[in-house]
């Protein structure tokens, strides 16, 4: 059974004028069908305003469908009686790390979710320890979040979600406000959770490099799913991606241009290592930060 499933999901935002009267509707999501199997690493790509953040909020019952259905691990998100089950099973990491950390000390913030769920005190401490260790932030447990770097703050946010023992984590552009090393930290933590703990990850991003290790990529455009498939399938369609105002990873673009110029290279090269091998060169072992 799919862990996350949306059926013909439609979401309209109501536009109001200054007096609060309805003046129109904007369709943010338009008939999206999404199927995510447990344990998958999913990337959702899309340019600004393509509806990807709105989609994310539907998966955690922060927004409700205008039409269609969202089913999370068998629960319909409109079913109020399972609201807290849904929010516990589908953890959410947001864009701005400052605006989602509630505690004044790292460990207190991680304990916030379990506290809300009514977990006994002793177990909260166990959960806090295991989740901080899972993201490599255990030694910072007594620090104030204000003293951490962006990447570290975001890892604390992820730990706060893991402490609730979710089956699935939805990350809504968790790296958008971070520097390259912070981005790398967060993505590495997300991939480790997926591979070691087998937590389903839905990563919403507009950095193409972050999507190349996903099991499946969805590309959204104007509220619809424009492209889907493995990263290789998606990124090999360089021209289609350009139409959707998206880049492909730089290596893929280079390979595409070389191929157009006549070199015998396959489509859908994702890493510099693959490109080097395709060109018959010995790849350097250092590689890019994303290898």
């Amino acid at each position: 059974m799919e862990i996350v499933k949306t059926i013909k999901l439609i979401h309209d935002y109501i536009v109001r004028d200054e007096e609060g009267n309805e003046t129109g509707k904007v369709r943010a999501i338009d008939g999206v069908d999404l199927d995510v199997a447990p344990g998958q690493f999913i990337a959702v790509l899309g340019h600004n305003g393509s509806g990807k953040s709105t989609l994310a909020k539907h998966l955690n019952a922060l927004l409700y469908p205008t039409e269609g259905q969202v089913i999370l691990d068998g629960f319909d998100t409109t079913d109020e009686s399972h609201l807290w089950d849904i929010r516990q099973e589908a953890g959410m990491v947001f864009q701005n790390p400052d605006n989602q950390i509630i505690g004044q000390v790292v460990e207190e913030d991680v304990g916030f979710g379990p506290e809300n769920m009514g977990v006994p005190t002793k177990e909260i401490w166990e959960r806090v320890e295991e989740s901080l260790k899972a993201v490599g932030m255990w030694e910072f447990r007594k620090k104030s979040p204000n003293r951490l770097s962006g990447g570290q703050k975001q890892r604390v946010s992820i730990a706060g979600v893991i402490a609730m023992h979710p089956k699935c984590i939805i990350m809504d552009e968790p790296t958008a406000m971070l520097d390259p090393s912070g981005r790398h930290e967060v993505i590495r933590a997300a991939r480790a959770l997926n591979q070691v703990e087998h937590i389903t990850i839905i990563l919403i991003t507009h950095y193409m490099e972050e999507a190349i290790y996903a099991d499946k990529v969805f590309v959204m455009d104007e509220g619809k799913i424009a492209l889907q498939g493995t990263p290789r399938e998606v990124f090999s369609q360089v021209d289609r991606m350009k139409e959707l105002h998206l880049d492909v990873p730089q290596v893929t673009l280079l390979a595409h241009e070389l191929r157009k110029a006549g070199l015998p290279i396959p489509e859908g090269i994702l890493t510099s290592r693959e490109l080097a091998l395709a060109l018959g060169l010995q790849p350097k072992e250092t590689g890019s930060a994303w290898d």
């Binding site: 955690n60 922060l62 516990q88 509630i102 207190e108 916030f112 979710g113 809300n116 005190t121 706060g160």
Partner: peptide, 18 residues
């Protein structure tokens, strides 16, 4: 929104870490 996403629903049924 972040608090709601982490199941915050007021003081009822809440346990304390410390």
């Amino acid at each position: 929104m972040a608090m709601e996403a982490r199941c915050y629903h007021g003081g009822e049924g809440r346990t304390k870490m410390k």
